[in-house]
Each structure stands twice: as C-alpha cells, then as structure tokens.
Computed example of a mutant assay.
Amino acid sequence: MDLSSLLLFIPACFALNMAPGPNNLLSLHNASRYGLRTACVAGAGRLLAFSGMIALAAMGLAVVLHTSEYLFLAIKVLGAGYLFFIAWQLWRAPVSEARVAGEQPSGTWKLARQEFWVAAGNPKAILIFTAFLPQFVTVGGNMPVSEQFLQLGVLFLLLEWAAIAIYAGLGAYLQRWFERPGPRRVFNRVSASLLGCAGLGLLAARR
C-alpha cells in the first residue's frame, strides 16, 4: 500500500472505529464503573472478535455471509438478543453502593467476554471488513494481497484500541459524577436504552 492510500485509510478507518456503537458504549460504561485500565483490558475481547473477522475476510469466507440470507439472519438475531440481555442487566443493576475509583471487578474476564460476543454478534462488522479493507488492497502489486490484508488488519486493530482507550478515558472522567446512586441509576438506564436501540437496529439491518 502506497503512502497516499495509507493517508486516506487511517482517517477513514479511525472514523469507523470512533463511531458510536454497542462496543464503544460498553467501554464507556465499564470505565465509568471499574476504571480506565479494566475497560481497556476488557476491550481485548472485542479485538479478538475483530481479528477473527479480518481473518475470515482475508480468506474470502465472508462471501458466505453475503450470500446466505439465513446465516446472516441467525447471526443478527443472536447478536440482537445478546444486546437485549445486557441492556436488561444494566437496567436492573443495583446502584446502592458506588465502587471505589479504580477498583478491579471480580469479573474482568466476564467483561472481556461481553465485548467479544457483542462484536462477534454483529454481522455488519464482518461486512465492513469485506467492503472497506479490500478498497485499499492493490492487486498485482509488489506485495501479495494476503500481506496487504494483514497490514491493514493490524492497523485497523491498533486504531480500534485507540478508540477503546478514548471511550474508556471518557468513562473514567465521568466516574466521579456517578458515585451517588441516583446519577448512576440514570446512567445505567440510559446505557441500557441505547444498547436496546442498537439491538433493534441490528434486527433491522439488511445484507
């Protein structure tokens, strides 16, 4: 990939990474509750899911998702159902006692699993990798297509990690505003409502 393509790819890719979505909302919420470090560690689950999607796109297996209406429907229904489940948990989450800033939760692995399944349950993500990344791959150039895809994928994941850190940083900044039960309950329910809307949007998505 030449320099001009790289200079176009980075801002376009980062705009995708920073777009508000269920995973970024999770990072924001996790940081507001558990701190910056925990939210960033949990974000590794999202990166793992995206890595698998990039590998599928590079191998051409994502065409199956393009052509199979039933597979697309199954993935989006399961993904939306999981978003509704998380939204319900947030809506009913107890807020009587605020956590100490920076306290590590007992379920960091659970938060990472949430990030993974939210990302993996969104079929639009793999369609983005199928439609977006190949635009910056040069066929017949000096570098094999697979290596170009690998480089673009690694760069995408690095920018995604930056987006995780930015949303987590915002959540950590807001942490002190939600030490009281009242504001935290409002924040949890707003987050739950947004995740529920994301689930509805996923159900409405078409191939």
Rank of each mutant, 00 (worst) to 15 (best):
C40N: 10
V41E: 00
A42K: 00
G45E: 10
G45C: 09
G45W: 03
G45P: 07
R46K: 11
R46G: 07
A49E: 07
A49Q: 15
S51N: 05
S51Y: 11
G52C: 07
M53L: 11
A55Y: 01
A55L: 15
L56C: 06
A57Q: 01
A58P: 04
A58R: 07
G60L: 01
G60M: 08
L61P: 02
A62W: 06
A62K: 01
V63H: 15
V64M: 10
H66I: 13
S68K: 13
S68L: 15
F72K: 00
A74F: 11
A74P: 13
I75N: 09
K76S: 12
K76M: 10
V77D: 10
L78M: 15
A80L: 01
G81N: 11
F84N: 05
F84L: 14
F85Q: 08
F85L: 12
F85W: 15
F85G: 01
I86M: 04
I86L: 06
W88D: 07
W88H: 11
W88S: 02
L90I: 07
A93E: 14
P94M: 04
P94C: 05
S96I: 06
S96N: 14
R99N: 14
R99L: 15
V100F: 13
A101I: 08
G102V: 07
G102Q: 08
Q104P: 00
P105Q: 12
P105T: 12
G107S: 07
G107H: 10
G107Y: 03
K110D: 12
K110P: 01
L111E: 15
L111S: 12
L111Y: 11
L111C: 09
A112Y: 12
Q114P: 02
E115L: 02
F116W: 12
F116R: 08
G121V: 10
N122S: 06
N122F: 03
P123A: 12
K124C: 01
A125T: 09
I126K: 10
I128Q: 15
T130A: 12
T130C: 06
T130V: 09
T130Q: 02
F132L: 05
F132G: 08
Q135E: 03
Q135I: 06
Q135Y: 00
F136I: 07
V137A: 00
V139K: 12
G140R: 02
G141F: 07
N142Y: 06
P144D: 10
V145Y: 04
S146I: 01
Q148L: 06
L150G: 14
Q151F: 07
Q151P: 03
G153M: 04
G153N: 01
V154P: 02
V154R: 04
V154E: 09
L158A: 06
L158F: 03
L159P: 08
E160H: 07
W161S: 06
